[in-house]
Design a protein around this nucleic acid. Structure first.
Lengths: 160, 160
DNA sequence: GTCGCTGCAAAGTCTTTGCAGAGAG
DNA sequence: CTCTCTGCAAAGACTTTGCAGCGAC
């Protein structure tokens, strides 16, 4: 199983870069750089999980209680970031929408239906094949996502 | 581009079969077979689209106005069908949850970000590769889904 | 007949919006 | 200073639930 990768510790974009991109984006649209917006970006960056608006809000309140950031601001910032393609949203079954930074290396998702854990992976062969399919069907591909559902190694043990 | 298929006119399961499976399922759980439940199944079967609860409800009201089926029943029936794996739900971006019959042949989705059209396709190479990946990562795969986003052939013409 | 089902409307969730004061540029 | 942002709370959108009568078995 040569080229399957699940190790994303090497982020493709460093935080400083991300932050500066964000500032450029804001400036370009005559929007203001506020501490709340930075905190949302930073918290997303420092989380390895896929966060719901609610869990992101909770995290922010724990780390920066003095800001008493409102959930509305989290929603507004996520919408802004998603619109600008800086974050991506995923939604799996009944679990609602989850967000992740789009600046990480592209990857697909493997979702455990027992514990809800999401493992990321990349497979070059599938990536290439997706491009072939899109062009064969005369489709101008901009993005794609793939999810594999099942039971993770851990939960297989536990369930037994 | 040998084995990409987008033609799903040959359904893998005929309606009579589907209906009988549904009846078995109901009986097994001491649930009742009602006209409303049948109408939901039938309407899903006869639709080639991916339906939201709301659009499904609208369709049912148009085709069977005398039943004055409530939206609550549609939600309840969809939940029942999904739980029993007879339908699958998908959710793409902001467009909300859409349902489709799971009994059709397995396929993936290509979603036009301009007109929202969903084209279904199957590619054997990707199907196989997904199995390989799951087993390589010690993951017991139960299902998977893949979406390619982009602009369909039609909209590419129009946009020009 | 019994007991689950249905439509209705009310209650929940989750998300968005209006507003007045706070704060970035 | 101006004009956008923010938190709050209220409003919306979508989904689920309680209930009393209806209907499958």
């Amino acid at each position: 199983m040569s080229n399957i990768t699940t190790d994303f510790n090497d982020r493709t974009v460093e935080y400083e870069q991300l932050l500066s991109d964000f500032k450029v984006l804001l400036k370009k649209n005559t929007l203001k750089f506020t501490i709340q917006r930075e905190v949302v970006l930073e918290t997303l960056y420092n989380s390895d999980e896929h966060l719901t608006p609610e869990s992101l809000h909770r995290l922010i309140q724990e780390k920066f209680p003095e800001l008493s950031t409102g959930i509305a601001t989290v929603y507004r910032t996520l919408a802004l970031l998603e619109e600008s393609d800086m974050v991506t949203s995923l939604s799996f079954g009944a679990q609602g929408k989850k967000y992740e930074l789009g600046a990480k290396m592209h990857h697909d998702h493997m979702i455990c239906t027992v514990c809800g854990e999401i493992t990321e992976f990349v497979d070059e062969e599938i990536e290439e094949r997706q491009h072939s399919i899109a062009s064969a069907l005369d489709f101008k591909m901009s993005d794609h996502s793939m999810q594999i559902y099942g039971i993770c190694a851990n939960c297989q043990k536990t369930t037994k």
